[in-house]
Simulated assay, not measured.
Amino acid sequence: MGVLKSATRGVALGCFALAGSGAAFAGAWDTLGIGSLDLLYAPEDFVVESSVTYVNRNVDYDVTEASHSGGTGVTTGPVSSRATPNIWNYQGAIKFGMMDNADCLARINNPFSIEEEMDHDWRGRFSGYETQAKTFAIDATCSYKFQVGEGRYLRAIAGARAMDMTYYSQAAHPAGVPAVVDLKSDGLEYGWRVGVAYEVPAYAMRASLIYDSEINADLEGHTEVTGLAKFDSFSSLTLPQAVELNVQSGVAPGWLVSAGVKWVDWSVIDVLSVTNAAGNETVHRKLNFKDGWTVKAGVGHALNEQVSVGSSLQWDRGVGGSYSDTYTVGFGSSYAANKNVKFTLGTAAIYKTSGSGNANNLASHTVNEYEYDGSWAFAVNTKIRVSF
Rank of each mutant, 00 (worst) to 15 (best):
G221L: 11
E199I: 13
T53R: 04
M1T: 12
E220D: 13
D119R: 11
N280Y: 02
T282W: 06
S80Y: 07
Q314V: 11
E244K: 11
L39H: 05
G254E: 09
A66Q: 02
N246K: 10
G320N: 10
A229P: 00
H301S: 05
A83R: 06
A133G: 11
T72Y: 05
A348W: 03
K383F: 13
V261K: 02
G97L: 12
D212I: 07
S50N: 07
V295M: 08
D232E: 12
I215Q: 04
L313E: 01
S50C: 11
G71A: 07
A172Y: 04
H68I: 07
N276D: 14
K262V: 07
E220C: 04
L313T: 08
P253D: 03
G97Q: 12
V59N: 04
S6M: 11
F388N: 08
S6K: 11
V367R: 05
S249A: 14
E49D: 15
V225R: 03
V180S: 04
P111Q: 06
V367P: 00
F289G: 10
A336K: 12
G221F: 09
V181T: 15
G357P: 05
D103R: 10
E214T: 14
S80H: 10
L256C: 05
K95W: 08
S311W: 03
D103C: 09
E371S: 09
I157F: 08
T326L: 10
V180H: 03
T326P: 01
G73I: 12
L256D: 03
A172D: 10
G310C: 04
S80P: 12
V295H: 02
S50I: 13
E244F: 10
G374L: 14
H222R: 12
N361P: 00
D139N: 15
A28T: 02
T223R: 07
S235D: 06
P111T: 08
G310Y: 05
S364F: 00
N340W: 11
S322N: 07
G20A: 06
F388E: 08
S258V: 01
V243L: 13
Y167T: 14
D291E: 07
D103W: 06
A12L: 15
L303S: 02
F331M: 13
V52P: 06
G292D: 07
G14T: 12
S67P: 01
D232Q: 09
V196R: 03
N358A: 07
N381S: 13
P201M: 11
F331V: 15
S387P: 02
G70W: 10
